[in-house]
Design a protein around this nucleic acid. Structure first.
Lengths: 185, 185, 185, 185
DNA sequence: TATGAATGAGCGTTCATTCAT
DNA sequence: GATGAATGAACGCTCATTCAT
């Protein structure tokens, strides 16, 4: 069939979901293909360098999404700091709960910790930018150095809660975590 | 002449290290065999059901270790609650930093979240017993329900810090997390 | 608007170069396409039967070229036999040294020896006509049967030298071979 | 079946034949496996590094064979130089005619000329040692430098004749070439 | 005229597992 | 007890080819 069955963006979205659920290594090209209703060979038309390139683009797309839709909340002029924090956390949590799969960046970090480090830069960038956006909000109330500390701690709690959510198949853990973080502020 | 080259316990210890570093799926039987100075065929003598059985026994052994050496600290008669918390956290952290590989139970939880072979029960048990031991300590100062909440939060922070430690290759994140948890108490 | 981007002849010339360097099987349609600044699908407009048809036309074009520009030297009225031999050999060698790739016909003969698609006839024709043209020159000095023998030997030496040139990355082997052949005459 | 079905040496012999007939790239692991009555995955037990390692061992085995059984003739004390030349050429030709496939070293040289050069050293060694052994024989009658030249020319003729033998499916070309080389001495 | 999109078959490789010895 | 030998299924990937547009 010579008609385009699926756009590159759609492929990336479907693949993101799979990587988020199953992890990078446990997701086969065949599974990705099936999800896109393509044959696995067809991917190399869109992604000349194969699976690793898909992952790179998935991570980049996801990073871009977070930048625009989540981290950007920190600089939104029409919100006061507590509103910003609430919005930024709730938005983030909604994404972590979706597919009940937690954070692609955190998950991938563990998967590749002791392997091919080609993804590491994007992963680190994600966490750095996340930290910066949170820190910016906390700085409305606290000194920069303490704000940074709070930002890091917030990331830690979100990542940790995401793990426990998956261990116990219980989304409430995420929500409680969020509530606690908002309370503290 | 049947001289046993290696005991089951030794195999499990070597394998634990590999699983902790590389994850369950990314560790091959070949690698395990090499680490144990055995040939991969030989494992099916020790573990009739193969890799999955090895993982089960690794998780069980590790759980037993935590019960005896870590969680047991919560009921140690010769320590007061703050001492207990310090000891239990520091002991735990030392294990997470070892091999710079984080928590086998947390890591495995993410790996199998949507694959879930039969590991989930052991993983849940680990977190439940961990929670109980922490809760017991916090109960010295707080109401049971709040203590439980604090225990859960403590686990969340340790797991989250363990992820960030690996993202940034920085053990200090773990230590700071511990310090914060002790401070709060 | 159907402006032809490239003529069939230009495609064949570019492809000849690739086949000569890399061999038929080791040259992909993608590489050919790239060299012609076309997309690989486009070849099936020019060559309905695909790669094999391209090769056929490449071989035919190359054979025609040799007929007109090389073998024809044997019947050139304005040269005496030694001049003919010198011209025919030097012209030929220049083509073998180009791209440091040796003889397309010899190379292809080895590639398809036991695979033999339909190329064999053109290959044989090339060698037969080459032999005839050389033989004709030698007949000026020797008996037809001995001339034929010399012609065959000349081809053998040129082909063999072409192999050694490639083994040792040394064009001098070709030139020395040529000198020896001229000397002998 | 846990009983050894085939020895490494037998694998190499069968594979040599395939590579010699079809070339390295045109011989698939599946074909090698079939020839050995193994499944293709099984090779990685004998050859951890796969196809390239098989080829290396095939080339090495073949080189060793030539050293012991062919090139060694040049230093055989019980033969005079003409006898040596006759024996060394006839022995060599018998190997080239076998499988009607010509010379593995020459063929491979062309195949890899413009690709991965990992085999090049063995190929060059083959030709160097071949040249040395021939040169040694010619030195009985000629000056070293001329002997070397004759040796090179002998290799050239054998390689070239091997190509023409395959083009015309005619073993006689090889034999005539040999006769001529002996005559000249 | 030329291409964008897709495919099917095959490739070399990995790996958990089996089992006679 | 432990292994040497083998396997089958799956994996990521390449490539010649097709064909609606």
């Amino acid at each position: 069939m010579p008609i385009q069955k699926i756009t590159k963006a759609e492929i990336l979205t479907k693949t993101l979901e799979l990587f988020q659920k199953q992890g990078y290594y446990q997701t086969s090209m065949e599974q990705i293909a099936e999800a896109c209703q393509l044959k696995k060979g067809s991917f190399y038309y869109y992604f000349k360098d194969g699976k690793e390139e898909i992952m790179h683009e998935v991570l980049q797309m996801s990073l871009d999404f977070f930048r625009e839709k989540v981290f950007a909340i920190a600089t939104q002029a029409d919100l006061n700091p507590p509103e910003k924090l609430e919005k930024i956390l709730k938005k983030h949590i909604r994404l972590l709960i979706k597919y009940k799969s937690g954070c692609l960046f955190g998950k991938t970090s563990l998967e590749i910790a002791h392997q091919s480090p080609s993804f590491k830069p994007v992963l680190q960038t994600f966490f750095e930018e996340w930290e910066n956006s949170l820190s910016q909000i906390y700085e409305a109330k606290y000194q920069p150095s303490y704000a940074k500390q709070l930002a890091k701690q917030t990331m830690i709690e979100m990542q940790g809660a995401s793990i426990l959510m998956q261990v116990f198949d219980n989304e409430e853990i995420m929500n409680e975590c969020c509530a606690r973080l908002l309370d503290k502020f």
